[in-house]
Amino acid sequence: MRIAIDILIGISVFFAFAGTVGLLRMPDAFSRMQSSTNIATMGVLGVIIGGVLYAIFILHDSAMAIKLAAMGVFYIITNPIAGHAIAKGAYKHGVRPKDPMCVDKYGEDLVDE
């Protein structure tokens, strides 16, 4: 069981690493956000699932396991809403990539309104 927990945490460390590299390398704000969802999903979920298993099988602490699972659920529910709000706010505020995007249907439709 200890090995399974370590593998889960290792996977999430890999994804968090990839997300951070993406965050530094991506050319514009929106692509950076895409890369950071990498950390936000697999990076966090792996650690939380690993933590729940650790609490159940090694610490034998069910209250801690339940709290961790509740944290995971809240994380999954709230994270996309924040991401959506940031993306929309950035676009409405006038943030645009330096190299024009290959297609921008949202900008075209906003002009019509």
């Binding site: 890999f14 994804f15 990839a18 997300g19 590299v21 993406g22 390398r25 991506m26 050319p27 514009d28 929106f30 692509s31 895409q34 890369s35 969802t37 990498n38 990539p97 995007m101 290959c102 297609v103 921008d104 249907k105 949202y106 900008g107 439709d109």
Partner: peptide
């Protein structure tokens, strides 16, 4: 997305679709 970010060529083509 992880392999896209780690790829040296950074093969991305961002855009907003409807």
């Amino acid at each position: 997305v992880a392999f896209r970010a780690l790829n040296p060529k950074l093969p991305i083509k961002p855009g907003i679709v409807k």
